[in-house]
Write a protein that binds this DNA or RNA. Structure first.
Lengths: 227, 227
DNA sequence: GTCTATAAATAGATAGAC
DNA sequence: GTCTATCTATTTATAGAC
């Protein structure tokens, strides 16, 4: 149970993230965060200015990570646009997997109009959108995507990932009550599904919806690989 | 400023819905709800057992309405499956428009694992899913839809509507900061976009995405529903 | 850096007057 | 039905010992 120096802050952040995700900003008490981190409440105020700064720091870190990740994808000169979309979706799902507290926190933050996000956090959040927009534009410029509204596309591709992962507990509860199909739908299948939708929807040509009868594309992007 | 009898309860519910949507269950104080309803806090406890019952009642009413609406759509023998999907999406968007507090409340409730929903509320919620499942099955049986996983479909079609409408304040804030395209994307366009995706994704044959030959039906809101 | 103790404000909920 | 006043628990945050 020995703690290495610098760990305290990290432990508090981890505990806070879990509490904020589960109960929201108001529902998560500083006491509960401290208890989960196995520290005293005063410790939190030693390391952080107040509850809100702690909260914002967590979100900001998440936004920054996805922002950097998706920026790298958008910048990759070797990657065709269709592959970039796949990677973009993967980047979101990777965040959700490695930071499971992010989807719930983002859902709540959207729900209350992002009132707790300062300008800096909003900028970081908007960069994710911006990176998607750039990919769409490149695809359109190269003629492989049809012109697509970035906002519409963002909400059809990004938010389902957030929602799906955030709703895992509810889906499991419904499955236990036998109101959902017993067969669990895992995130990997969902992501695959979303990618295929993205491909279909963004395709430039009046291409068919069904891949069944689809002629083999000569040498278009066939990006199945995960990040 | 005269109140007709029976209005008190309604006023409290309206105020509570707005507060819950904006601040969440824990963030919305009974005092604030009472103040918004222009009543005293004690009035709330006269009409409702406690804060949580009031909260659940609001959600339950919303679920029940969409559940009934979508059930009627699924049951409609005259409607082809593709049109039913359109109507299903409309039903969700109608709820979001007439009950703007529902999307935020649903997002928050998902985020915390629906811990406040009793079995009855969960049943009402699951009926919405069930109605979509029935439409998909019918379409598949009739050969006009490809077999589609109802859970995957639910999360690609339903959650974007919720998320999009719940995020209206944030989108507007970002637009004011000029980080989003100035041209506002309105809900109608988004719904149209979603319907076209649904059609493309669900199409059985390598058929065109265009809804060329759909019978025109006046899409009308259900009678006697909430203002 | 970490703790105990406590201040100060606010929460949900109730009693009882009218 | 509606109000004022209040009880009790919990909240964020801080002071100060070690």
């Amino acid at each position: 149970m020995k703690r290495t120096p610098g760990d305290t802050r990290t432990a508090i952040i981890a505990a806070a993230a879990a509490e904020f995700a589960a109960h929201g900003f108001d529902g998560a008490s500083v006491d509960a965060i401290a208890a989960r981190a196995r520290f005293n409440k005063a410790m939190i105020y030693y390391h952080f200015e107040n509850k809100q700064r702690l909260y914002v720091e967590i979100l900001r870190d998440g936004f920054r990570t996805v922002g950097a990740h998706t920026a790298a994808i958008a910048d990759d000169a070797d990657l065709p646009p269709a592959a970039k979309i796949d990677r973009f979706i993967d980047a979101l799902d990777d965040m959700a997997a490695s930071r499971p507290y992010m989807p719930p926190m983002m859902m709540r933050e959207m729900a209350e109009g992002a009132v707790r996000l300062d300008a800096d956090s909003l900028r970081l959040l908007s960069r994710i959108f911006e990176n998607l927009r750039r990919i769409l534009e490149e695809g359109s410029r190269l003629g492989v995507f049809r012109p697509a509204d970035p906002v519409l596309t963002y909400f059809t591709l990004v938010t389902p990932v957030i929602f799906f992962r955030a709703s895992t507990p509810v889906r499991e509860a419904l499955a236990r009550q036998h109101v959902l199909p017993a067969a669990q739908v895992d995130a990997t299948r969902f992501v695959t599904h979303l990618k295929s939708i993205a491909r279909t929807v963004l395709a430039a040509s009046p291409s068919p919806a069904a891949p069944a009868k689809q002629k083999k594309r000569t040498r278009q992007s066939r990006p199945g690989e995960h990040a």
